[in-house]
């Protein structure tokens, strides 16, 4: 696959880099990545991946664009308020880079559809805004050995971690089970600074690009925590948990769980 003249021009600033070059660019153009959520994290992440020339980007979201999203979800714009987020995302990404094939999935992820969805992709990026999806994505990726790029944000804080199943810890090694419903506020309730989403989503994109090109050191076995008010990053080493319910030596979770159903029942009975 020879790069066209317009591609050489478009990607020139990364082709120049010693560890990228034509080889790295061709890897990016051949890569297939799935972004879960076209929101605060998915927006900067998907935009940078599209800009870098990742060949196929699937994007999953069942919501429509709302005015209050625009403060941080930079994939969308005032003119796409009311439209489906994945369609709004596709328009913006194709406008940015026609090399990229954007595949929109206007669905809600469940234990029924997730395996079929992720099987066509090289890796998964978690930009979800809720625990049921986060655990579902983690378990599905561990069970199918898909690299997973986790990001999470709340208020003025964020965290990033790269999960390579069997090579390093997964999300459950750190947090074995979701918190009880209602114990942790969502961004909807607690708020989030848009630029914090930008920092974390961009770090996820950076990890993905490095993984695709096979360069640098990934956030495997360590979590990066960002404190926006103090403008500081902190790294915490995380060992793989031998007792992890999903990736441990004797896993107790062998089937996917739809926590949402579980949570809503729990909420209903409280």
């Amino acid at each position: 696959m020879q790069l066209r003249d317009d591609q050489i021009e478009r990607y020139s600033r990364q082709l120049i880099l010693p560890k990228v070059g034509g080889k790295g660019q061709r890897k990016l153009l051949a890569a297939k990545v799935l972004v879960i959520g076209a929101g605060g994290l998915g927006s900067p992440c998907a935009l940078y991946l599209a800009a870098a020339g990742v060949g196929r980007i699937g994007i999953v979201d069942s919501d429509r664009v709302e005015l209050n999203n625009l403060q941080r979800q930079i994939l969308h714009s005032t003119t796409t308020v009311g439209r489906s987020k994945v369609e709004s995302a596709r328009l913006r990404m194709n406008d940015l880079n026609g090399d990229v094939e954007v595949v929109p999935y206007e669905i809600r992820l469940t234990s029924e559809n997730i395996l079929n969805l992720i099987k066509d992709y090289d890796l998964v990026i978690d930009g979800s805004d809720n625990f049921p999806t986060r655990y579902l994505v983690n378990d599905a990726c561990v069970m199918t050995s898909k690299p997973l790029f986790h990001g999470g944000i709340l208020k003025f804080d964020g965290q990033v971690m790269t999960i390579l199943p069997a090579e390093g810890p997964c999300y459950r090694c750190l947090f074995p089970a979701p918190p009880p419903p209602g114990s942790v506020p969502s961004c909807q309730q607690a708020g989030i600074l848009g630029a914090v989403a930008g920092v974390i989503g961009t770090m996820q994109a950076n990890e993905v690009i490095k993984y695709i090109m096979g360069i640098g050191n990934l956030l495997v076995g360590r979590i990066m925590i960002f404190d926006a008010l103090n403008s500081s990053f902190r790294q915490v080493k995380i060992p793989r948990n031998a007792d992890c319910p999903v990736c441990g030596d004797r896993p107790t979770i062998t089937e996917l769980i739809d926590y949402e159903l579980f949570c809503s029942i729990a909420e209903g009975t409280q």
Binding site: S12, L15, G22
Partner: peptide, 14 residues
Amino acid sequence: CPINYVKTKLVLEE
């Protein structure tokens, strides 16, 4: 510049 350099680099890689 820098397209001349980028093109040289791409050819040398191969």
